[in-house]
Amino acid sequence: MSYLATSPIDGFVSVYKEAVNKYFKDIFTKLPHNTQRAYVSDFNEFAIFCEQEGLTGFNDSMQNNEDCIKRYVEVLCHSPLAYRTIKRRLSALSKFLGIAQLPNPIVNSVYLKDFVKLSLSQNEKYQLSSHQAVPLTVDILEKINNNVIPDTLLEMRDLAIINLMFDGLLRADEVVRVRTEHINKRNNALLVLTSKSDQTGKGSYRFISNSTVAMIDEYINEANYNKALQQERDSSDPRRINHGILFRRVSNRGHALLPYDEQLKGKHSPILEYSSIYRVWKRIADMAKVKENITPHSGRVGGAVSLAENGATLPEMQLAGGWHSPEMPGHYGQQAAVGKGGMAKLAQLKGR
């Protein structure tokens, strides 16, 4: 219930308080934490959309609810959101309509179901063809590692982030939550606990190479050394990495970590934001003179493509990236196979 106390969806809840409160009291609070957070986030996004568009939101009218969701789908499909994210948001809205016992066009309107199906189908094609991240392949990664000789703690951190995201096929929201205790150097394993595809909260294990382990060690050693005093930082120093979040905020000069406090929230949270990881990729690309437009998703895509190029099977790719379905690994495998197809062989034969 605490989730809804400060939520923009309060307006909806107050109208159908009895049905909603019963559900949240008896069921919602017993769901996995990640599921609770995802539902509330999706509800809030819809509430914000309604407020911005001047809509009253859901009510007892099927037509009203149908029009409202149709407009929401149109906006979502013109946003950079992924196909799966849009489907998840609609699923959350359908769940809410059921909880509030309101007319649900997502389930009962043939018109809306067909409209959503066609809109999402077009969106998926557009996302895959036009907005796919440029893969960070092994060749580009080697270029980065050869050209970037880190001089500051910031550069050491950034280089370790890039390499870890490639090894583990990590998303930005996964790498920012990596903790020191999640790394098993003996088994070259990384435990990933937070993932949008992990609804159980059990996590998954990813591979981490020896070279990446060495980069992380270099970053930690540099962070734990006080250059001003020419000595190791005391174990109680809040700038020292003893445990907890691995990749932390760095001071403006890039030579020391900012004081770490696990309890801080919001903009002061020790967990980096997506914008920070985005800047990491841009800084490293500039330093390495990489012309390709690589982004935080390039490591995950590039890792999958590189695996496919080197003969990895779909199950091996699924395990490496923590995918539950072979759909996306299969897409990346198809991308990698283009250079080995018949036309590629003809071009090579004819010197084209």
Results as ranks from 00 to 15, higher is better:
192 V>I: 14
192 V>N: 01
192 V>K: 00
193 L>C: 10
194 T>C: 10
194 T>E: 05
195 S>L: 05
195 S>R: 05
197 S>G: 12
197 S>K: 08
198 D>F: 01
199 Q>Y: 13
200 T>F: 15
200 T>G: 13
202 K>T: 14
202 K>A: 15
203 G>R: 05
203 G>L: 11
203 G>A: 14
204 S>G: 14
204 S>I: 11
204 S>R: 09
205 Y>S: 13
205 Y>M: 14
205 Y>A: 12
205 Y>L: 15
206 R>E: 05
206 R>P: 04
206 R>S: 05
207 F>W: 12
207 F>K: 07
207 F>A: 02
208 I>A: 01
208 I>N: 02
208 I>H: 02
209 S>V: 08
210 N>D: 13
211 S>F: 04
211 S>N: 15
212 T>E: 02
212 T>P: 03
212 T>D: 04
213 V>I: 15
214 A>K: 12
215 M>W: 03
215 M>K: 07
215 M>R: 07
216 I>R: 00
217 D>L: 08
217 D>T: 11
217 D>W: 08
217 D>Q: 11
217 D>Y: 06
217 D>S: 12
218 E>V: 06
218 E>L: 09
219 Y>I: 04
219 Y>A: 06
219 Y>T: 00
220 I>M: 04
220 I>E: 01
220 I>A: 01
221 N>H: 11
221 N>L: 09
221 N>W: 07
222 E>R: 11
222 E>D: 07
223 A>N: 05
224 N>F: 00
224 N>M: 03
225 Y>W: 08
227 K>Q: 07
227 K>E: 02
227 K>T: 12
228 A>G: 04
229 L>A: 12
229 L>S: 12
229 L>C: 09
229 L>N: 10
230 Q>S: 13
230 Q>V: 06
230 Q>H: 14
231 Q>V: 08
231 Q>L: 10
231 Q>D: 13
231 Q>C: 14
232 E>W: 07
232 E>K: 10
232 E>S: 09
232 E>M: 09
233 R>E: 02
233 R>H: 06
233 R>W: 01
235 S>M: 10
235 S>E: 15
235 S>W: 11
235 S>Y: 12
235 S>T: 13
236 S>K: 08
236 S>F: 07
237 D>C: 08
237 D>R: 05
237 D>N: 11
237 D>M: 06
238 P>D: 03
239 R>M: 06
239 R>V: 00
239 R>K: 15
240 R>L: 03
240 R>H: 09
240 R>N: 10
240 R>V: 04
241 I>F: 03
241 I>R: 00
241 I>E: 00
242 N>A: 07
242 N>R: 10
242 N>C: 09
242 N>Q: 09
242 N>F: 04
243 H>Q: 14
